[in-house]
Amino acid sequence: MKLIIIVLSAIFVNNFVLSRFLGICPFLGVSKKVETALGMGIAVTFVMALASVMTWIVQIAILVPLKIEYMQTIAFILVIAGLVQFVEMVMKKTSPTLYQALGVYLPLITTNCAVLGVAILNIESKFNIMETLLNGIGGALGFTLAIVLFAGIRERMELAPYPKSLEGFPIALITASLLSIAFLGFSGLL
């Protein structure tokens, strides 16, 4: 039961993008087309699930026993950067088609704060490894849901007339605001 709540909470109630403000850069940057948004979402899901587990292991197996928890930020960002590189290499070797589809998004993920964010949140919430994995996957699915919905709206907005000052980021942010209001409706879910 607790596990289901963690997943639902990460996807809907505490959606990473729309209520926790994590991963806004790719959310605004890679959301002009549904197709690329979906690609980004899948790449993030993959990395976030792996990163959640890896950073959790680093924390429990290295940082805590050595009493160097203050190295957490540095260790986590290096683990994530290394992981992204590793995923890129493996993907290139084993599945060129997948690499072609997702390759361009991978380097961007290192600086996606949702990945580092979920890693730190897992430790702060004192999750065990199963909860950590599910929180990572749930958070990433929430990210994917938000970015795909957002891209869908933006595709249609292309044709809509709006004031010149609002062109570009302003209108995108206002759209995101409305989407965020919609997600507030999930508040009472759990």
Partner: peptide, 21 residues
């Protein structure tokens, strides 16, 4: 609503528009 998450997006969007203008 302004200090809830949607308010963040809204104020930011309008602030950029204002700044540009």
């Amino acid at each position: 609503i302004l200090i809830l998450p949607p308010g963040g997006f809204l104020v930011y969007g309008l602030a950029i528009a204002l700044f540009n203008k």
